[in-house]
Design a protein around this nucleic acid. Structure first.
Lengths: 344, 344
DNA sequence: CATTGGCGCTCTCGCCGGAGGAGTGCTGAC
DNA sequence: GTCAGCACTCCTCCGGCGAGAGCGCCAATG
């Protein structure tokens, strides 16, 4: 049994591989006759039929009806990507092209362009979960809008700018505001908000009462700004999926799918899940646990800053996709995104 | 000829109105028999057929094939909305609901929620062109990121925060940065960037050379920030259009339509156009000059701040839509958006 | 005993023709 | 001007039919 894996002998594996590759290529159910020609094996259609019957029993392939060829099941795809697939890495030129398309001006643009690149290259939908902010803060500023409304400007450690309007109980003078900002900037720059909270708690007694209020308000707003904007998912190229006939043939599925795209949170959960693993992850059909995706596959890869995973990139397409091409694209995009973020 | 408009006598108008209303209601071509029942007129189908033939000659209606009923043409819809339609304004309750859905925290949220509300209420796609910024500036701040990279934070007169990274030729000390910011803040707060540019040109000689560089860089960045983020269009509820069978029945049209949605600029032109008129505007079918929209209607209304038009809201749906309902929704949304912005 | 050619069976798909239905245009009567 | 009647056209919906594809099974073979 040296040449068997999961009960599949070498011949069966070869045929399964050939079948899936063919099916991915042209979307038609594959018959024994066709398979006998393209498998490379010197086998008659009849023999192939035997093997196919076995493969069907084991749940790797299925036939849409009595006398069509066979198509891969989700389980078949699973086995395919796990043990049969040989991904060919992108060559240098393609990587350079890809890199060239990323807009590095700021984090927002970086993320959007990454998502865009993914969808352009794969012609499916590209998704990127925006980077978790490193909770550190670099600079803070209070600006008086009207008597009791302040604009809080917050520059996080990674150079992104957040702003929030806060209502105060009393009216602060400009100098008070400057003072408060100075205290925070001088003493706590670089710390995370939790750190600050803890330290401020201890040291705050030395400050005037109203100052305290201002500080805590600022901290709360900062916390909120950080956590609220913490994770979002950017999708692009949903349109591409309209052109995928596997999906566009049944309108209801398509609608469910697009509804899913509007429900960011659900999608976020799925993608977050994948950021716990490392390297490329693949969800095929219902594996993701989301019913609208049962004719889709999701390919994801986490990206990181300073060795810490901060987000996920991915592609959503039909289960019938060119995995050997999409996988390296997602992989490389994650890596390029990581290194682009590292330079900021 | 007192009771004629554009060559249509009263009876023809009544019938056209009944026909269109019926067609909008159930999407089926309307025949003479049905029309004779629901028109309210005491006319036999035969007489009605005569009128319908006239209406067809004049291009208001057409028949999909020999023996179907008639459907309105774009020209028919045009006449309908221009002279036959009686819009029923929303009642107080609906307006309040609508108002409740707007999120007033900041401009961004306001715009997004407005678009969202439009799509929810009409079940079509909602669009909003983001407000043109009043070019004034309120506050500026330089923050050193690394040796020659500065983060420029810019608070515009309307309380929005912009930020830009600028590369400098020399390395500035924190105090120099503060000084530069102070000069701008003290002397020019409230002015538009053009004003500043003009005045700075004159007064700049008194400043040190390197300061000048910093200032002009800041001005350029500010200008760019203002102009770049000046106009964008937010679309929501595109998914709804998948559920509209008038559109979803032919996939190609649908794809073109969604492609249009990704090409913001084209859409922007159309919407901008409408902001020059005042009040609700309606583009039916190809009237907008965009071929992907030839089975769609676009209902728009400009919104304003301080009596100046700053953007446009709108709804994109099939030509066969309940105009008498959509029109007031768009109208009110524009007004609510105006007043929400006024309070900021 | 794995392989293979042959055979019958099943299922889909496209095509054709007829029935049914809807709605029109026309004509002649009032 | 209105209207009933009538012939005509066109669409849609089957049902049947043949072609094609592909399978399962079986018996023969080396």
């Amino acid at each position: 049994m040296a040449n068997e894996t999961q009960g599949l002998n070498e011949r069966a594996q070869l045929l399964l591989k050939a079948l899936i590759e063919r099916y991915i290529a042209d979307g038609q159910p594959v018959g024994s006759r066709a398979l006998s020609k393209l498998s490379g094996l010197e086998l008659s259609p009849a023999s192939i039929r035997n093997v196919m019957a076995d493969l069907e029993d084991m749940g790797f392939i299925a036939s849409p009806h009595t006398s069509a060829g066979r198509v891969p099941t989700a389980r078949g795809y699973r086995f395919f990507v796990d043990t049969l697939l040989t991904v060919k890495p992108l060559d240098r030129i393609e990587i350079n092209q890809l890199e060239g398309q990323l807009q590095v001006e700021n984090t927002q643009k970086l993320v959007t362009s990454a998502s865009h690149v993914l969808s352009e290259l794969t012609r499916f939908a590209g998704v990127v979960v925006t980077p978790r902010r490193s909770a550190g803060f670099r600079h803070i500023e209070f600006l008086k809008l009207s008597e009791k409304r302040l604009l809080l400007i917050l520059v996080t450690a990674d150079g992104d700018v957040q702003n929030r309007i806060i209502q105060t109980e009393k009216s602060y003078s400009p100098s008070e505001l400057t003072e408060a900002a100075n205290i925070l900037n001088r003493n706590y720059a670089g710390c995370s908000f939790e750190d600050i909270r803890r330290r401020v708690q201890a040291e705050l007694k030395q400050l005037r009462e109203d100052m305290t209020q201002l500080m805590t308000a600022a901290l709360a707003a900062g916390d909120q700004a950080v956590s609220e904007s913490a994770e979002d998912v950017v999708i692009s190229g949903e349109v591409n999926l309209l052109g995928v006939d596997d999906l566009s043939s049944n309108m209801n599925k398509l609608r469910e799918l697009f509804n899913l795209f509007e429900h960011r949170t659900t999608l976020l959960q799925l993608l977050d899940h994948s950021s716990r693993a490392q390297g490329v992850q693949i969800f095929i059909g219902g594996e993701a646990g989301l019913q609208p995706l049962d004719e889709c596959s999701v390919i994801t890869a986490p990206y990181e800053v300073d060795g810490k995973v901060v987000g996920t990139v991915g592609v959503i397409g039909p289960t019938r996709m060119a995995y050997e091409r999409v996988i390296p694209i997602v992989d490389i995009t994650a890596k390029l995104l990581s290194s682009a973020l590292a330079q900021r």
